[in-house]
Design a protein around this nucleic acid. Structure first.
Lengths: 341, 341
DNA sequence: CTTATCCAGTAAAGCGGTTAACTGACTTTT
DNA sequence: AAAAGTCAGTTAACCGCTTTACTGGATAAG
């Protein structure tokens, strides 16, 4: 690969001039610029990213941190990732998915090594040590999801509170009064304290109570099997249940089947609303699930924009931290219907 | 962050010595080693990855290239990714998922820039320009999946041929004679020429013919809806079909529902076998699908090992290229049964 | 006609490491 | 006892690019 020095020699200029041409850092006369450009083309010059990074202390690489192994990337996360990657690319950055395998030290290496300009954190828990670590390391970052305390946290997140309220508005609007919530049980796993679950459950309980209704909450095991069991558990507690909100695609699929097995027709006897999901996921079930779609695309875009603004120093030093909340949007399909008489 | 020079000063040695301690590149007396180690600990020294990369021309980073947007990461790919990342980590490398957004130039930048030591390519088509490009750039790489011509291609892949034979052995062993194949139609999409589909279909046709049976092949649209339609199409062609092999999870879910809608019970009337799938995916359907499980875990591990062997120069210069094929393993669940009389 | 300003371009000092070649003291060999 | 090895450490030349300070000629101002 041709180096900058070779280009300089060939164009009969100094290496600095080449650098100015490449980066547009300083004015160069049209004539020399032309010579340099030609030389670059002839030699097939490519700027060495590593050398540039060392000298300038910027790589234009953003890492999307992903807790490896645990929790596989759902379609929502994937959408988010793609959207973020595209937006980053438009803004001249690379967004890579970095599975943090070995724990905090690996993180430290990348960051203090200067390999990465900034970080996006996902799958955040109510208390999350990674956040503190990033703050300590003074790495520019943004979080997808919020910890319990958000005062010093730049984040974008799904507005689970509003999503839940909207969902309940919709269901009660259909006449439902006995409504259950199915949430995967993460206690004991590495995802214990996962914020979306906790917020959703809390809001569900509060909102139901406020509406003068009894909150029926059932936790379940992982996968479709867990959802299936949840149906049985729920019906055992409250046989007259007429609507269920469920928080994970797997669980939702299992839930619907569990309800059928128990002789409840969906949506005639029991309505099912899958939240923080997507059209595509909903379409995998029969009947097609009514969903509240996670705004993965928008969140990805916004997260990257906020982070890059911070990186490029476009944001005022003491500007307010980004605190963006977007609710899931209701998409009515075949799994919800008016409450049975 | 403390630099190596600072550590050296503090320990009263030269910077080279510190480097030797850090990398174990040269013998250092226990006494000095101890002083250096202590100094590093006190200063919280972290090796600067970028500087190291520039000087040594190695980053110990491997990029898993992913064609952005197109084809979202299925659970098989994800398993593969995780397994590869873990194995890489064990071997002292980082494996990151790099969505190539802007096309070949981006690729070129990373590689000629020396940001990445090697590359893993996935979602390979029968003719794939990326392979040629990587060869041209002389970047060490390994492919998950094979192009049509594999003479110069280092790869690991699912043995679709054997998988299909095994699947057909199993089904014919159950007495099935009228067997269909459902494959998603990718013509006209960016994934046209996707190797797994082509190999599977070809082997299906050949093997069926060899067995003296008629190969019923139906292509379908994307998602569950496509699979559903495929059921109708297949029954229109061959109403007495008694078994169907299907190649994608989405399609499989839709297919099962489509069959039910058409009044066929699974598995009593029609058996369904989902290939290149996984237990977890199969469990999302009702009845639980019999699957042939993609060896994502093994492939990820093997791919990374082969690549790193190449990187570390452990392989002889003219050693044979890795050509590894692993079949999917049959996992019998609830969607297959003996052929009806 | 000076002196002050511009301007395009250059020289050179890093950025934080790696590594080949070298040094000097001490141990073996013959 | 002289020649030859060992061995732990050091020196210094890179790796390829960025960026600040500087130069010298051309133009504008006084």
């Amino acid at each position: 690969m041709a180096t900058m020095q070779e280009v300089a020699t060939r164009a009969g200029v100094s290496i600095a001039t080449v650098s100015f041409v490449v980066n547009g850092t300083k004015r160069v006369s049209p004539a020399t610029r032309e010579r340099v450009t030609a030389a670059m083309a002839e030699l097939g010059f490519r700027n060495n990213v590593v050398a540039r990074a060392l000298a300038s202390k910027r790589t234009r690489i953003i890492a999307l941190l992903h807790p490896a192994l645990e929790h596989r990337l759902g379609s929502t996360s994937m959408k988010f990732f793609m959207s973020a990657a595209n937006r980053a690319s438009e803004l001249g950055y690379h967004l890579v998915l970095w599975p943090v395998v070995t724990g905090p030290d690996e993180l430290r290496d990348l960051l203090s090594g200067g390999l990465v300009d900034g970080v996006v954190v996902m799958e955040v828990k109510m208390e999350d040590s990674r956040i503190e670590r990033l703050t300590d390391l003074r790495v520019p970052f943004i979080s997808i999801g919020r910890t319990a305390d958000t005062t010093h946290l730049p984040f974008v997140d799904i507005d689970f509170e509003k999503t839940m309220e909207d969902g309940l508005d919709y269901l009660t609007g259909l006449g439902h009064r006995r409504i259950g919530l199915v949430i995967e049980d993460l206690e004991g796993t590495s995802m214990a304290g996962y914020a979306p679950h906790i917020r959703s459950e809390r809001t569900f309980r509060e909102s139901m109570t406020r509406r003068g209704l009894l909150p029926h909450v059932v936790t379940c095991g992982p996968g479709a099997a867990g959802g299936r069991q949840a149906a049985a558990d729920l019906l055992a507690t409250e046989p007259d249940i007429s609507a269920v909100i469920v928080m994970k695609d797997d669980s939702a699929f299992g839930l619907v089947r569990g309800l059928s097995t128990a002789g409840r027709r969906v949506p005639d006897d029991v309505s099912v609303l899958s939240i923080a999901s997507s059209d595509e996921a909903g379409a995998q079930s029969e009947p097609v699930l009514s969903t509240m779609n996670a705004p993965g695309h928008e969140l990805g875009k916004l997260a990257v924009e906020a982070l890059i603004e911070q990186l490029d120093g476009a944001a005022a030093p003491d500007a307010e931290l980004p605190h963006l909340l977007l609710p899931c949007l209701l998409h009515v399909a075949g799994s919800t219907a008016p409450a049975p008489a």
